[in-house]
Design a protein around this nucleic acid. Structure first.
Lengths: 299, 299
DNA sequence: GCTATCAATACCTTTTCGGTATCATGACGA
DNA sequence: TCGTCATGATACCGAAAAGGTATTGATAGC
Protein backbone atom coordinates (compact mmCIF):
# COMPACT_ATOMS: atom_id res chain seq x y z
CA UNK A 1 0.00 0.00 0.00
CA UNK A 2 1.16 3.50 -0.70
CA UNK A 3 -1.41 4.93 1.64
CA UNK A 4 -0.07 7.76 3.65
CA UNK A 5 -0.66 9.36 7.00
CA UNK A 6 -1.28 12.58 5.13
CA UNK A 7 -4.20 11.02 3.31
CA UNK A 8 -5.52 9.75 6.59
CA UNK A 9 -5.27 13.21 8.12
CA UNK A 10 -7.02 14.70 5.11
CA UNK A 11 -9.75 12.12 5.34
CA UNK A 12 -10.37 12.75 9.02
CA UNK A 13 -10.68 16.49 8.37
CA UNK A 14 -13.06 15.83 5.52
CA UNK A 15 -15.10 13.32 7.51
CA UNK A 16 -15.46 15.84 10.30
CA UNK A 17 -16.65 18.65 8.07
CA UNK A 18 -18.24 16.66 5.24
CA UNK A 19 -17.30 19.56 2.99
CA UNK A 20 -14.29 19.55 0.67
CA UNK A 21 -13.84 23.30 0.71
CA UNK A 22 -14.00 23.77 4.46
CA UNK A 23 -11.88 20.71 5.12
CA UNK A 24 -9.24 22.00 2.73
CA UNK A 25 -9.28 25.32 4.50
CA UNK A 26 -8.76 23.61 7.84
CA UNK A 27 -5.83 21.70 6.34
CA UNK A 28 -4.36 24.88 4.89
CA UNK A 29 -4.47 23.57 1.36
CA UNK A 30 -6.80 24.31 -1.52
CA UNK A 31 -9.71 22.13 -2.48
CA UNK A 32 -8.37 20.37 -5.60
CA UNK A 33 -5.43 18.62 -3.85
CA UNK A 34 -7.82 17.42 -1.18
CA UNK A 35 -10.19 15.99 -3.74
CA UNK A 36 -7.27 14.26 -5.42
CA UNK A 37 -5.84 12.80 -2.22
CA UNK A 38 -9.22 11.48 -1.13
CA UNK A 39 -9.75 9.94 -4.55
CA UNK A 40 -6.31 8.35 -4.35
CA UNK A 41 -7.06 7.05 -0.86
CA UNK A 42 -10.32 5.48 -2.00
CA UNK A 43 -8.62 3.99 -5.04
CA UNK A 44 -5.73 2.52 -3.09
CA UNK A 45 -7.95 1.19 -0.33
CA UNK A 46 -10.40 -0.07 -2.89
CA UNK A 47 -13.13 1.26 -0.63
CA UNK A 48 -15.73 3.94 -1.18
CA UNK A 49 -15.51 6.13 1.92
CA UNK A 50 -17.87 8.97 1.00
CA UNK A 51 -21.17 9.23 -0.77
CA UNK A 52 -20.99 12.44 -2.83
CA UNK A 53 -24.24 14.00 -3.92
CA UNK A 54 -22.59 17.05 -5.46
CA UNK A 55 -24.60 18.97 -2.89
CA UNK A 56 -23.22 17.52 0.28
CA UNK A 57 -21.18 14.46 1.09
CA UNK A 58 -21.84 11.75 3.66
CA UNK A 59 -19.77 8.93 5.06
CA UNK A 60 -20.45 5.37 4.00
CA UNK A 61 -20.50 2.68 6.68
CA UNK A 62 -16.94 1.74 5.70
CA UNK A 63 -16.02 5.42 5.90
CA UNK A 64 -17.40 5.72 9.40
CA UNK A 65 -15.39 2.70 10.45
CA UNK A 66 -12.28 4.07 8.77
CA UNK A 67 -12.76 7.37 10.55
CA UNK A 68 -12.66 5.73 13.96
CA UNK A 69 -9.73 3.52 13.06
CA UNK A 70 -7.87 6.44 11.52
CA UNK A 71 -8.18 8.48 14.67
CA UNK A 72 -6.74 5.58 16.62
CA UNK A 73 -3.93 5.04 14.14
CA UNK A 74 -2.98 8.70 14.15
CA UNK A 75 -3.04 8.84 17.93
CA UNK A 76 -0.85 5.75 18.12
CA UNK A 77 1.56 7.30 15.68
CA UNK A 78 1.78 10.52 17.62
CA UNK A 79 2.21 8.62 20.84
CA UNK A 80 5.19 6.83 19.30
CA UNK A 81 6.82 10.17 18.48
CA UNK A 82 6.09 11.62 21.89
CA UNK A 83 7.40 8.52 23.62
CA UNK A 84 10.67 8.70 21.71
CA UNK A 85 11.15 12.24 22.95
CA UNK A 86 10.25 11.31 26.51
CA UNK A 87 12.57 8.31 26.35
CA UNK A 88 15.46 10.46 25.21
CA UNK A 89 14.86 12.87 28.09
CA UNK A 90 14.82 9.96 30.51
CA UNK A 91 11.20 10.51 31.46
CA UNK A 92 10.11 7.16 30.03
CA UNK A 93 11.93 3.87 30.12
CA UNK A 94 13.28 1.28 32.50
CA UNK A 95 15.92 1.74 35.16
CA UNK A 96 17.45 -1.25 36.92
CA UNK A 97 18.95 -0.52 40.30
CA UNK A 98 20.95 -3.02 42.31
CA UNK A 99 21.47 -2.47 46.01
CA UNK A 100 22.83 -4.16 49.07
CA UNK A 101 20.21 -5.29 51.54
CA UNK A 102 21.42 -2.87 54.18
CA UNK A 103 20.42 0.07 51.96
CA UNK A 104 16.80 -1.09 52.23
CA UNK A 105 16.97 0.27 55.80
CA UNK A 106 18.73 3.51 55.01
CA UNK A 107 18.54 5.52 51.79
CA UNK A 108 16.82 3.23 49.30
CA UNK A 109 13.16 3.80 50.27
CA UNK A 110 13.31 7.57 50.20
CA UNK A 111 15.51 7.61 47.10
CA UNK A 112 13.08 5.34 45.27
CA UNK A 113 10.03 7.32 46.33
CA UNK A 114 11.64 10.59 45.33
CA UNK A 115 12.60 9.29 41.88
CA UNK A 116 9.28 7.59 41.17
CA UNK A 117 7.38 10.73 42.18
CA UNK A 118 9.46 12.92 39.90
CA UNK A 119 9.38 10.44 36.99
CA UNK A 120 6.07 8.61 37.06
CA UNK A 121 6.55 6.96 33.66
CA UNK A 122 9.86 5.30 34.42
CA UNK A 123 9.68 1.64 35.27
CA UNK A 124 12.03 0.85 38.14
CA UNK A 125 13.45 -2.61 38.80
CA UNK A 126 15.10 -3.07 42.17
CA UNK A 127 17.48 -6.00 42.66
CA UNK A 128 18.98 -7.06 45.97
CA UNK A 129 22.56 -8.30 45.88
CA UNK A 130 25.54 -8.68 48.20
CA UNK A 131 27.83 -5.64 47.93
CA UNK A 132 30.88 -7.31 46.38
CA UNK A 133 28.96 -8.48 43.30
CA UNK A 134 27.44 -5.09 42.53
CA UNK A 135 30.36 -3.36 40.74
CA UNK A 136 30.67 -6.16 38.21
CA UNK A 137 26.91 -6.23 37.65
CA UNK A 138 27.09 -2.54 36.81
CA UNK A 139 30.14 -2.80 34.57
CA UNK A 140 28.54 -5.60 32.57
CA UNK A 141 25.40 -3.52 32.18
CA UNK A 142 23.02 -5.76 34.12
CA UNK A 143 22.25 -2.85 36.42
CA UNK A 144 22.15 0.80 35.55
CA UNK A 145 22.98 1.95 39.07
CA UNK A 146 23.72 0.51 42.47
CA UNK A 147 23.49 1.59 46.07
CA UNK A 148 26.22 0.02 48.15
CA UNK A 149 29.14 0.61 50.51
CA UNK A 150 31.89 2.52 48.77
CA UNK A 151 33.74 -0.10 46.70
CA UNK A 152 36.74 2.19 46.20
CA UNK A 153 38.14 3.29 42.87
CA UNK A 154 37.25 0.91 40.04
CA UNK A 155 38.12 1.59 36.45
CA UNK A 156 35.03 2.59 34.48
CA UNK A 157 32.90 2.98 37.58
CA UNK A 158 31.76 6.33 38.98
CA UNK A 159 30.48 6.72 42.50
CA UNK A 160 29.02 9.46 44.63
CA UNK A 161 28.50 9.43 48.41
CA UNK A 162 24.85 9.80 49.30
CA UNK A 163 24.78 8.65 52.92
CA UNK A 164 27.17 8.34 55.85
CA UNK A 165 26.63 6.84 59.26
CA UNK A 166 28.61 5.88 62.31
CA UNK A 167 29.25 2.34 63.41
CA UNK A 168 28.04 1.38 66.84
CA UNK A 169 28.36 -1.63 69.07
CA UNK A 170 25.54 -4.10 69.28
CA UNK A 171 25.55 -6.64 72.10
CA UNK A 172 23.11 -8.86 73.95
CA UNK A 173 21.31 -6.99 76.73
CA UNK A 174 22.95 -9.24 79.32
CA UNK A 175 26.42 -8.60 77.96
CA UNK A 176 28.89 -6.73 80.17
CA UNK A 177 29.37 -4.06 77.45
CA UNK A 178 25.63 -3.37 77.38
CA UNK A 179 25.98 -1.71 80.75
CA UNK A 180 28.25 1.03 79.38
CA UNK A 181 26.72 4.28 78.07
CA UNK A 182 29.54 4.60 75.52
CA UNK A 183 32.12 2.08 74.44
CA UNK A 184 35.83 2.63 73.82
CA UNK A 185 37.78 0.50 71.35
CA UNK A 186 40.06 -0.89 74.05
CA UNK A 187 37.08 -2.35 75.86
CA UNK A 188 36.49 -4.70 72.91
CA UNK A 189 39.79 -6.48 73.47
CA UNK A 190 39.41 -10.25 73.32
CA UNK A 191 35.70 -9.99 72.58
CA UNK A 192 34.55 -12.47 69.86
CA UNK A 193 33.20 -10.36 66.99
CA UNK A 194 30.63 -11.21 64.31
CA UNK A 195 31.25 -9.51 60.97
CA UNK A 196 30.88 -9.85 57.23
CA UNK A 197 33.52 -11.91 55.36
CA UNK A 198 36.35 -9.73 54.00
CA UNK A 199 35.37 -10.17 50.35
CA UNK A 200 31.68 -9.38 50.79
CA UNK A 201 31.95 -5.81 52.12
CA UNK A 202 35.64 -4.86 52.24
CA UNK A 203 35.01 -1.25 53.10
CA UNK A 204 32.98 -2.08 56.16
CA UNK A 205 35.36 -4.81 57.30
CA UNK A 206 38.33 -2.47 56.83
CA UNK A 207 36.70 0.29 58.83
CA UNK A 208 36.18 -2.12 61.71
CA UNK A 209 39.72 -3.45 61.44
CA UNK A 210 41.28 0.01 61.38
CA UNK A 211 39.25 1.09 64.38
CA UNK A 212 40.30 -1.87 66.46
CA UNK A 213 43.95 -1.85 65.38
CA UNK A 214 44.29 1.84 66.15
CA UNK A 215 43.57 0.82 69.74
CA UNK A 216 46.13 -1.96 69.46
CA UNK A 217 43.55 -4.73 69.38
CA UNK A 218 43.83 -7.83 67.21
CA UNK A 219 40.23 -8.74 66.47
CA UNK A 220 38.86 -12.24 66.84
CA UNK A 221 36.33 -13.16 64.15
CA UNK A 222 34.73 -16.46 65.04
CA UNK A 223 31.49 -16.09 63.13
CA UNK A 224 30.76 -14.42 59.81
CA UNK A 225 27.58 -13.64 57.85
CA UNK A 226 26.90 -11.62 54.75
CA UNK A 227 23.96 -9.50 55.86
CA UNK A 228 23.93 -6.97 58.66
CA UNK A 229 20.49 -8.20 59.64
CA UNK A 230 21.84 -11.72 60.07
CA UNK A 231 24.72 -10.44 62.17
CA UNK A 232 22.34 -8.60 64.47
CA UNK A 233 20.17 -11.71 64.82
CA UNK A 234 23.23 -13.72 65.78
CA UNK A 235 24.14 -11.11 68.38
CA UNK A 236 20.60 -11.42 69.74
CA UNK A 237 21.38 -15.11 70.32
CA UNK A 238 24.42 -13.98 72.31
CA UNK A 239 26.87 -15.60 69.92
CA UNK A 240 29.13 -12.54 70.06
CA UNK A 241 29.07 -8.76 69.64
CA UNK A 242 29.39 -6.76 66.45
CA UNK A 243 30.15 -3.33 65.08
CA UNK A 244 27.29 -2.44 62.73
CA UNK A 245 25.97 0.72 61.10
CA UNK A 246 23.93 2.72 63.59
CA UNK A 247 20.84 2.47 61.40
CA UNK A 248 20.53 -1.21 62.35
CA UNK A 249 19.31 -0.02 65.73
CA UNK A 250 16.09 1.20 64.18
CA UNK A 251 14.91 -2.33 63.44
CA UNK A 252 13.62 -2.55 67.00
CA UNK A 253 14.74 -6.07 67.88
CA UNK A 254 14.33 -6.77 71.57
CA UNK A 255 17.03 -8.15 73.85
CA UNK A 256 19.70 -6.08 72.14
CA UNK A 257 21.76 -3.09 73.25
CA UNK A 258 23.09 -0.62 70.72
CA UNK A 259 25.89 1.54 72.18
CA UNK A 260 27.81 4.42 70.60
CA UNK A 261 31.53 4.10 70.12
CA UNK A 262 34.07 6.68 71.15
CA UNK A 263 35.70 8.11 67.99
CA UNK A 264 33.30 5.98 66.02
CA UNK A 265 34.33 5.10 62.45
CA UNK A 266 31.91 5.92 59.69
CA UNK A 267 30.84 3.99 56.62
CA UNK A 268 29.48 5.59 53.52
CA UNK A 269 26.79 4.53 51.05
CA UNK A 270 27.47 5.46 47.46
CA UNK A 271 25.41 5.39 44.32
CA UNK A 272 27.52 3.82 41.59
CA UNK A 273 27.10 3.70 37.82
CA UNK A 274 29.08 2.74 34.77
CA UNK A 275 30.89 5.50 32.91
CA UNK A 276 29.22 5.90 29.55
CA UNK A 277 25.97 4.21 30.54
CA UNK A 278 23.62 5.74 27.99
CA UNK A 279 20.33 4.86 29.66
CA UNK A 280 18.67 8.29 29.68
CA UNK A 281 16.80 7.48 32.88
CA UNK A 282 20.11 7.23 34.74
CA UNK A 283 20.82 10.99 34.83
CA UNK A 284 17.45 11.84 36.38
CA UNK A 285 18.00 9.04 38.88
CA UNK A 286 21.38 10.42 39.84
CA UNK A 287 19.81 13.86 40.11
CA UNK A 288 17.16 12.47 42.47
CA UNK A 289 19.96 10.87 44.48
CA UNK A 290 21.59 14.27 44.86
CA UNK A 291 24.62 13.56 42.68
CA UNK A 292 26.03 16.89 41.43
CA UNK A 293 25.52 17.48 37.73
CA UNK A 294 29.26 17.74 37.21
CA UNK A 295 30.24 14.34 38.55
CA UNK A 296 27.25 12.74 36.84
CA UNK A 297 28.13 14.11 33.42
CA UNK A 298 31.91 13.87 33.26
CA UNK A 299 31.78 10.13 33.58
CA UNK B 1 5.21 17.14 12.50
CA UNK B 2 6.02 16.18 8.97
CA UNK B 3 7.04 12.72 10.03
CA UNK B 4 5.86 10.09 7.67
CA UNK B 5 4.88 6.46 7.77
CA UNK B 6 7.55 5.89 5.17
CA UNK B 7 10.22 7.12 7.52
CA UNK B 8 8.83 4.87 10.20
CA UNK B 9 8.94 1.89 7.87
CA UNK B 10 12.50 2.75 6.91
CA UNK B 11 13.50 3.07 10.52
CA UNK B 12 12.01 -0.29 11.46
CA UNK B 13 13.89 -1.97 8.61
CA UNK B 14 17.08 -0.27 9.67
CA UNK B 15 16.59 -1.10 13.33
CA UNK B 16 16.07 -4.74 12.43
CA UNK B 17 19.22 -5.01 10.33
CA UNK B 18 21.36 -2.32 11.95
CA UNK B 19 22.98 -1.91 8.55
CA UNK B 20 22.10 0.91 6.15
CA UNK B 21 23.05 -1.03 3.03
CA UNK B 22 21.11 -4.18 3.84
CA UNK B 23 18.11 -2.26 5.14
CA UNK B 24 18.02 -0.22 1.95
CA UNK B 25 18.14 -3.41 -0.08
CA UNK B 26 15.22 -4.83 1.90
CA UNK B 27 13.30 -1.61 1.21
CA UNK B 28 14.14 -1.72 -2.50
CA UNK B 29 15.86 1.63 -2.43
CA UNK B 30 19.52 2.59 -2.45
CA UNK B 31 21.48 3.46 0.64
CA UNK B 32 21.73 7.28 0.33
CA UNK B 33 17.97 7.96 0.43
CA UNK B 34 17.71 5.74 3.48
CA UNK B 35 20.47 7.65 5.22
CA UNK B 36 18.72 10.88 4.36
CA UNK B 37 15.29 9.76 5.53
CA UNK B 38 16.66 8.50 8.82
CA UNK B 39 18.53 11.75 9.33
CA UNK B 40 15.33 13.66 8.57
CA UNK B 41 13.39 11.48 11.01
CA UNK B 42 15.90 12.12 13.77
CA UNK B 43 15.91 15.82 13.03
CA UNK B 44 12.14 16.14 13.01
CA UNK B 45 11.69 14.03 16.12
CA UNK B 46 14.55 15.82 17.78
CA UNK B 47 15.71 12.44 19.01
CA UNK B 48 18.86 10.48 18.30
CA UNK B 49 17.66 6.99 17.43
CA UNK B 50 20.89 5.31 16.39
CA UNK B 51 24.45 5.41 17.61
CA UNK B 52 26.61 5.25 14.48
CA UNK B 53 30.16 4.10 14.88
CA UNK B 54 30.84 4.13 11.15
CA UNK B 55 31.55 0.44 11.63
CA UNK B 56 28.18 -0.70 12.82
CA UNK B 57 25.17 1.07 14.17
CA UNK B 58 23.23 0.39 17.37
CA UNK B 59 19.93 1.60 18.70
CA UNK B 60 19.82 4.15 21.49
CA UNK B 61 17.39 3.61 24.35
CA UNK B 62 15.02 6.06 22.70
CA UNK B 63 15.48 4.19 19.43
CA UNK B 64 14.55 0.90 21.03
CA UNK B 65 11.43 2.45 22.44
CA UNK B 66 10.57 4.03 19.11
CA UNK B 67 11.04 0.69 17.38
CA UNK B 68 8.42 -0.96 19.56
CA UNK B 69 6.02 1.94 19.26
CA UNK B 70 6.56 2.16 15.52
CA UNK B 71 5.65 -1.48 15.05
CA UNK B 72 2.45 -0.87 16.98
CA UNK B 73 1.65 2.29 15.04
CA UNK B 74 2.20 0.60 11.70
CA UNK B 75 0.10 -2.38 12.72
CA UNK B 76 -2.69 -0.07 13.85
CA UNK B 77 -2.51 1.77 10.57
CA UNK B 78 -2.70 -1.41 8.52
CA UNK B 79 -5.55 -2.65 10.66
CA UNK B 80 -7.46 0.52 9.85
CA UNK B 81 -7.03 -0.12 6.12
CA UNK B 82 -7.99 -3.77 6.43
CA UNK B 83 -11.03 -2.93 8.53
CA UNK B 84 -12.27 -0.45 5.94
CA UNK B 85 -12.15 -3.18 3.32
CA UNK B 86 -13.88 -5.68 5.60
CA UNK B 87 -16.50 -3.10 6.50
CA UNK B 88 -17.28 -2.43 2.86
CA UNK B 89 -17.73 -6.14 2.22
CA UNK B 90 -20.08 -6.37 5.18
CA UNK B 91 -17.75 -8.66 7.12
CA UNK B 92 -17.22 -6.10 9.85
CA UNK B 93 -19.71 -3.70 11.35
CA UNK B 94 -22.91 -3.57 13.32
CA UNK B 95 -26.29 -4.92 12.29
CA UNK B 96 -29.39 -4.04 14.26
CA UNK B 97 -32.26 -6.49 13.91
CA UNK B 98 -35.70 -5.91 15.33
CA UNK B 99 -38.06 -8.83 15.79
CA UNK B 100 -41.41 -9.71 17.26
CA UNK B 101 -41.17 -11.85 20.37
CA UNK B 102 -42.86 -14.76 18.65
CA UNK B 103 -39.90 -15.10 16.26
CA UNK B 104 -37.69 -15.91 19.25
CA UNK B 105 -39.46 -19.31 19.21
CA UNK B 106 -39.31 -19.90 15.49
CA UNK B 107 -36.69 -18.64 13.05
CA UNK B 108 -34.67 -16.10 15.01
CA UNK B 109 -32.33 -18.44 16.90
CA UNK B 110 -31.19 -20.43 13.88
CA UNK B 111 -31.05 -17.35 11.68
CA UNK B 112 -28.89 -15.56 14.23
CA UNK B 113 -26.57 -18.50 14.75
CA UNK B 114 -26.17 -19.00 11.01
CA UNK B 115 -25.31 -15.36 10.43
CA UNK B 116 -22.94 -15.05 13.37
CA UNK B 117 -21.10 -18.20 12.33
CA UNK B 118 -20.62 -16.96 8.79
CA UNK B 119 -19.68 -13.42 9.86
CA UNK B 120 -17.86 -13.61 13.17
CA UNK B 121 -16.75 -9.96 13.14
CA UNK B 122 -20.19 -8.45 12.75
CA UNK B 123 -21.70 -7.12 15.93
CA UNK B 124 -25.40 -8.03 16.09
CA UNK B 125 -27.91 -6.11 18.13
CA UNK B 126 -31.27 -7.82 18.60
CA UNK B 127 -34.24 -5.72 19.68
CA UNK B 128 -37.60 -7.12 20.68
CA UNK B 129 -40.63 -5.11 19.60
CA UNK B 130 -44.34 -5.61 19.00
CA UNK B 131 -44.98 -6.30 15.30
CA UNK B 132 -46.92 -3.15 14.39
CA UNK B 133 -44.03 -0.85 15.37
CA UNK B 134 -41.36 -2.67 13.35
CA UNK B 135 -41.99 -1.27 9.86
CA UNK B 136 -41.63 2.30 11.04
CA UNK B 137 -38.50 1.45 13.00
CA UNK B 138 -36.99 0.10 9.80
CA UNK B 139 -38.07 2.99 7.61
CA UNK B 140 -36.58 5.50 10.02
CA UNK B 141 -33.33 3.55 10.07
CA UNK B 142 -33.38 2.50 13.73
CA UNK B 143 -33.21 -1.13 12.65
CA UNK B 144 -31.49 -2.55 9.61
CA UNK B 145 -33.79 -5.54 9.37
CA UNK B 146 -36.76 -7.04 11.12
CA UNK B 147 -38.34 -10.43 11.53
CA UNK B 148 -42.10 -10.16 11.87
CA UNK B 149 -45.49 -11.26 10.55
CA UNK B 150 -45.96 -10.06 6.99
CA UNK B 151 -46.95 -6.40 7.34
CA UNK B 152 -48.20 -6.25 3.73
CA UNK B 153 -46.98 -3.86 1.05
CA UNK B 154 -45.40 -0.71 2.50
CA UNK B 155 -43.75 1.93 0.37
CA UNK B 156 -39.96 1.75 0.68
CA UNK B 157 -40.06 -1.54 2.55
CA UNK B 158 -38.97 -4.85 1.06
CA UNK B 159 -39.92 -8.16 2.57
CA UNK B 160 -39.22 -11.81 1.95
CA UNK B 161 -41.01 -14.79 3.45
CA UNK B 162 -38.71 -16.98 5.47
CA UNK B 163 -41.09 -19.07 7.53
CA UNK B 164 -44.67 -20.26 7.37
CA UNK B 165 -46.70 -22.18 9.89
CA UNK B 166 -50.26 -23.25 10.52
CA UNK B 167 -52.45 -21.92 13.27
CA UNK B 168 -53.79 -24.41 15.76
CA UNK B 169 -56.23 -24.33 18.63
CA UNK B 170 -54.96 -24.12 22.15
CA UNK B 171 -57.34 -24.88 25.01
CA UNK B 172 -57.22 -25.91 28.62
CA UNK B 173 -56.86 -29.71 29.03
CA UNK B 174 -60.24 -29.87 30.70
CA UNK B 175 -61.93 -27.95 27.88
CA UNK B 176 -64.47 -29.79 25.78
CA UNK B 177 -62.51 -29.04 22.58
CA UNK B 178 -59.40 -30.65 24.07
CA UNK B 179 -61.07 -34.01 23.63
CA UNK B 180 -61.21 -33.69 19.85
CA UNK B 181 -58.29 -34.98 17.75
CA UNK B 182 -58.90 -32.24 15.17
CA UNK B 183 -61.04 -29.16 15.38
CA UNK B 184 -63.34 -27.68 12.74
CA UNK B 185 -64.04 -23.96 12.55
CA UNK B 186 -67.75 -24.45 13.24
CA UNK B 187 -66.95 -26.06 16.56
CA UNK B 188 -65.56 -22.73 17.80
CA UNK B 189 -68.93 -21.05 17.57
CA UNK B 190 -69.70 -19.00 20.68
CA UNK B 191 -66.38 -19.86 22.26
CA UNK B 192 -64.68 -16.86 23.94
CA UNK B 193 -61.38 -16.29 22.11
CA UNK B 194 -58.17 -14.68 23.32
CA UNK B 195 -56.21 -12.85 20.62
CA UNK B 196 -53.89 -9.97 19.89
CA UNK B 197 -55.45 -6.51 19.47
CA UNK B 198 -56.18 -5.70 15.79
CA UNK B 199 -53.46 -3.04 15.50
CA UNK B 200 -50.63 -5.08 17.03
CA UNK B 201 -50.51 -7.93 14.54
CA UNK B 202 -53.10 -7.28 11.84
CA UNK B 203 -52.02 -10.16 9.64
CA UNK B 204 -52.49 -12.72 12.36
CA UNK B 205 -55.77 -11.23 13.54
CA UNK B 206 -57.07 -11.14 9.97
CA UNK B 207 -56.14 -14.76 9.34
CA UNK B 208 -58.11 -15.78 12.42
CA UNK B 209 -61.08 -13.59 11.44
CA UNK B 210 -61.20 -14.92 7.88
CA UNK B 211 -61.00 -18.49 9.10
CA UNK B 212 -63.91 -18.09 11.48
CA UNK B 213 -66.05 -16.00 9.16
CA UNK B 214 -65.64 -18.53 6.36
CA UNK B 215 -67.46 -20.90 8.69
CA UNK B 216 -70.10 -18.27 9.37
CA UNK B 217 -68.93 -17.60 12.89
CA UNK B 218 -68.87 -14.15 14.46
CA UNK B 219 -65.95 -14.37 16.89
CA UNK B 220 -66.17 -13.20 20.48
CA UNK B 221 -62.99 -11.50 21.70
CA UNK B 222 -63.31 -10.91 25.42
CA UNK B 223 -59.61 -10.79 26.27
CA UNK B 224 -56.67 -9.45 24.33
CA UNK B 225 -52.88 -9.50 24.85
CA UNK B 226 -49.97 -8.46 22.66
CA UNK B 227 -47.74 -11.50 22.99
CA UNK B 228 -48.54 -15.03 21.90
CA UNK B 229 -46.83 -16.30 25.04
CA UNK B 230 -49.18 -14.21 27.18
CA UNK B 231 -52.19 -15.51 25.28
CA UNK B 232 -51.13 -19.11 25.86
CA UNK B 233 -50.60 -18.41 29.57
CA UNK B 234 -54.11 -16.97 29.78
CA UNK B 235 -55.50 -20.08 28.07
CA UNK B 236 -53.68 -22.17 30.66
CA UNK B 237 -55.71 -20.30 33.28
CA UNK B 238 -58.83 -21.39 31.40
CA UNK B 239 -59.83 -17.83 30.55
CA UNK B 240 -60.68 -18.82 27.00
CA UNK B 241 -59.27 -20.62 23.96
CA UNK B 242 -57.08 -19.18 21.22
CA UNK B 243 -55.81 -19.75 17.70
CA UNK B 244 -52.03 -19.46 17.82
CA UNK B 245 -49.13 -20.42 15.59
CA UNK B 246 -48.39 -24.12 15.92
CA UNK B 247 -44.87 -23.40 17.14
CA UNK B 248 -46.30 -22.21 20.44
CA UNK B 249 -46.95 -25.85 21.28
CA UNK B 250 -43.21 -26.44 21.59
CA UNK B 251 -43.01 -24.35 24.72
CA UNK B 252 -44.10 -27.37 26.73
CA UNK B 253 -46.53 -25.74 29.11
CA UNK B 254 -48.54 -28.28 31.07
CA UNK B 255 -52.29 -28.33 31.39
CA UNK B 256 -52.72 -27.23 27.77
CA UNK B 257 -54.00 -29.01 24.69
CA UNK B 258 -52.85 -27.98 21.21
CA UNK B 259 -55.14 -29.30 18.50
CA UNK B 260 -54.84 -29.04 14.71
CA UNK B 261 -57.51 -27.17 12.77
CA UNK B 262 -59.22 -28.47 9.69
CA UNK B 263 -58.24 -26.33 6.71
CA UNK B 264 -55.91 -24.50 9.06
CA UNK B 265 -54.94 -20.97 8.05
CA UNK B 266 -51.24 -20.16 7.87
CA UNK B 267 -49.25 -17.16 8.97
CA UNK B 268 -45.92 -16.17 7.50
CA UNK B 269 -42.79 -14.65 9.00
CA UNK B 270 -40.93 -12.24 6.78
CA UNK B 271 -37.59 -10.56 6.99
CA UNK B 272 -38.06 -6.90 6.18
CA UNK B 273 -35.62 -4.11 5.34
CA UNK B 274 -35.61 -0.61 4.01
CA UNK B 275 -35.03 -0.11 0.30
CA UNK B 276 -31.69 1.60 -0.12
CA UNK B 277 -30.34 0.69 3.30
CA UNK B 278 -26.60 0.95 2.66
CA UNK B 279 -25.38 -0.98 5.70
CA UNK B 280 -23.06 -3.51 4.02
CA UNK B 281 -23.79 -6.11 6.67
CA UNK B 282 -27.43 -6.19 5.59
CA UNK B 283 -26.82 -8.13 2.32
CA UNK B 284 -24.95 -10.95 4.03
CA UNK B 285 -27.69 -11.08 6.65
CA UNK B 286 -30.37 -11.37 3.98
CA UNK B 287 -28.26 -14.05 2.32
CA UNK B 288 -28.07 -15.97 5.60
CA UNK B 289 -31.83 -15.61 5.89
CA UNK B 290 -32.21 -17.23 2.49
CA UNK B 291 -33.44 -14.14 0.67
CA UNK B 292 -32.74 -14.55 -3.07
CA UNK B 293 -30.00 -12.25 -4.38
CA UNK B 294 -32.43 -10.70 -6.84
CA UNK B 295 -35.02 -9.48 -4.35
CA UNK B 296 -32.26 -8.34 -1.99
CA UNK B 297 -30.47 -6.21 -4.59
CA UNK B 298 -33.29 -4.65 -6.58
CA UNK B 299 -34.54 -2.80 -3.56
C1' DG C 1 50.22 3.06 6.92
C1' DC C 2 47.09 0.59 3.80
C1' DT C 3 42.85 -1.33 2.68
C1' DA C 4 38.19 -2.64 3.09
C1' DT C 5 33.79 -1.29 4.70
C1' DC C 6 30.10 1.56 5.48
C1' DA C 7 27.75 5.76 6.20
C1' DA C 8 27.48 10.60 4.55
C1' DT C 9 27.44 14.08 0.86
C1' DA C 10 26.97 16.13 -3.84
C1' DC C 11 24.47 16.42 -7.71
C1' DC C 12 21.04 15.13 -10.90
C1' DT C 13 16.45 12.97 -12.38
C1' DT C 14 11.88 11.58 -11.44
C1' DT C 15 7.85 11.66 -8.90
C1' DT C 16 4.55 13.70 -6.18
C1' DC C 17 2.20 17.42 -4.32
C1' DG C 18 -0.08 21.75 -4.12
C1' DG C 19 -1.88 25.97 -6.52
C1' DT C 20 -4.75 28.48 -10.08
C1' DA C 21 -8.06 28.31 -13.48
C1' DT C 22 -11.80 26.01 -15.31
C1' DC C 23 -15.39 22.60 -16.04
C1' DA C 24 -19.46 19.60 -14.84
C1' DT C 25 -23.36 18.75 -12.14
C1' DG C 26 -27.31 19.25 -9.65
C1' DA C 27 -30.26 22.12 -6.42
C1' DC C 28 -32.93 26.08 -5.95
C1' DG C 29 -35.42 30.26 -7.12
C1' DA C 30 -37.56 33.55 -10.28
C1' DT D 1 -38.18 26.14 -17.61
C1' DC D 2 -34.08 28.48 -17.40
C1' DG D 3 -30.52 30.85 -15.01
C1' DT D 4 -27.70 31.01 -11.00
C1' DC D 5 -25.20 29.33 -7.30
C1' DA D 6 -22.75 25.99 -4.73
C1' DT D 7 -19.67 22.26 -4.90
C1' DG D 8 -16.82 18.72 -6.32
C1' DA D 9 -13.87 17.15 -10.39
C1' DT D 10 -10.20 18.10 -14.10
C1' DA D 11 -6.43 20.29 -16.52
C1' DC D 12 -2.27 22.17 -16.33
C1' DC D 13 1.73 24.22 -14.23
C1' DG D 14 5.42 25.21 -10.85
C1' DA D 15 7.52 23.73 -6.43
C1' DA D 16 8.96 20.39 -3.24
C1' DA D 17 10.45 15.97 -2.12
C1' DA D 18 12.16 11.46 -3.04
C1' DG D 19 15.23 8.38 -5.23
C1' DG D 20 19.47 7.20 -8.06
C1' DT D 21 24.60 7.39 -9.23
C1' DA D 22 29.02 8.82 -8.12
C1' DT D 23 31.99 10.20 -4.70
C1' DT D 24 33.88 11.42 -0.28
C1' DG D 25 34.96 10.71 4.63
C1' DA D 26 35.85 8.00 8.55
C1' DT D 27 37.43 4.00 10.97
C1' DA D 28 38.47 -0.83 12.18
C1' DG D 29 41.58 -4.43 11.17
C1' DC D 30 45.67 -6.14 8.93
Amino acid sequence: MTIDLRQMRYFVALAETLHFGRAAERLHISQPPLTRQIAALERELGVRLLERNSRHAGLTHAGRRFLEDSRLAMATFEQACRNAQLAERGELGTLTVGFMMHAAHTVLPRLTRQFMNDHPDVHVELREMVPDLLPDAILTGRFDAAVTFDPGAIRGLSTDRIHEEQLCLVAHSSHRLAALPIVRAEQLAGEPLIATPPDVAPTLRDAILRYLRSAGIVPVFRLEAQLQQTIVSLVAENLGVALVPASMGKLGLSGLAFRPLEQAPTVAHVVAWRDGNMNPTLRPFLASAGVPESSASDS
